Amino acid sequence: MKLLIEIPTWLGDAIMSTPAIENLLKHYKGAEVTIVGSYVSTQLFVNDKRITNIIVDNTKKSLVRLLSVYQLAKKAKDFDYAISFRSSFYSKLLLKFLDTKENYNFEKEKITKHQVLKYNDFLNKTLNTEYKASDLMLRFKPQWYKKPTLGINPGATYGSAKRWYPEEFAKVAIELSKKYDIMIFGGPNETEMAADIEKTLIENDVSNYENLAGKTTIPELIEKIAALDIFITNDSGPMHVAAVYKVNTIAIFGPTSFAETNQWKNPLETIVSKYLECSPCMKRTCPLKHHDCMKTITSDDVLKLINK
Results as ranks from 00 to 15, higher is better:
Leu3Glu: 08
Thr9His: 15
Asp13His: 11
Asp13Asn: 15
Ile15Ser: 09
Thr18His: 07
Pro19Phe: 04
Ile21Asn: 06
Ile21Phe: 02
Ile21Tyr: 02
Asn23Tyr: 07
Lys29Pro: 00
Ala31Trp: 05
Gly37Ala: 03
Leu44Phe: 09
Phe45Gly: 06
Asp48Cys: 12
Lys49Pro: 03
Ile51Asn: 13
Ile51Gln: 11
Asn53Gly: 06
Thr59Val: 01
Thr59Arg: 12
Thr59Lys: 12
Lys60Asp: 12
Lys60Arg: 15
Leu63Pro: 02
Leu63Asp: 08
Val64Asp: 09
Leu66Phe: 11
Val69Leu: 02
Gln71Phe: 12
Ala73Lys: 09
Lys74Met: 12
Asp80Cys: 02
Leu93Trp: 06
Leu94Ala: 02
Leu95Lys: 04
Leu95Met: 09
Phe97Gln: 11
Asp99Phe: 06
Lys101Ser: 14
Asn105His: 13
Asn105Gly: 04
Lys108Arg: 13
Glu109Gln: 15
Ile111Tyr: 01
Lys118Asp: 07
Leu123Asp: 07
Lys141Glu: 15
Trp144Leu: 03
Lys146Leu: 06
Gly151Cys: 01
Pro154Met: 00
Gly155Pro: 08
Ser160Gln: 11
Ala161Cys: 05
Pro166Ala: 07
Phe169Arg: 01
Lys171Asp: 13
Lys171Gly: 07
Lys171Leu: 10
Lys179Arg: 12
Met183Leu: 04
Pro188Leu: 00
Glu190Pro: 05
Asp196Gln: 15
Asp196Leu: 10
Glu198Trp: 03
Lys199Glu: 14
Ile202Asn: 06
Ile202Met: 10
Glu203Ala: 14
Leu221Tyr: 05
Asn234Ala: 02
Asn234Lys: 07
Ser236Tyr: 04
Ser236Thr: 15
Met239Ala: 14
Ala243Gln: 09
Val244Lys: 06
Val244Ser: 06
Lys246Phe: 03
Val247Glu: 09
Asn248Met: 03
Ala251Gln: 06
Phe253Ile: 02
Thr256Gln: 10
Lys265Asp: 13
Leu268Trp: 11
Glu269Ala: 10
Val272Trp: 05
Ser273Val: 13
Leu276Val: 02
Ser279Ile: 00
Met282Lys: 09
Thr285Gly: 00
Met294Ile: 09
Lys295Cys: 01
Ile297Asn: 03
Ser299Tyr: 14
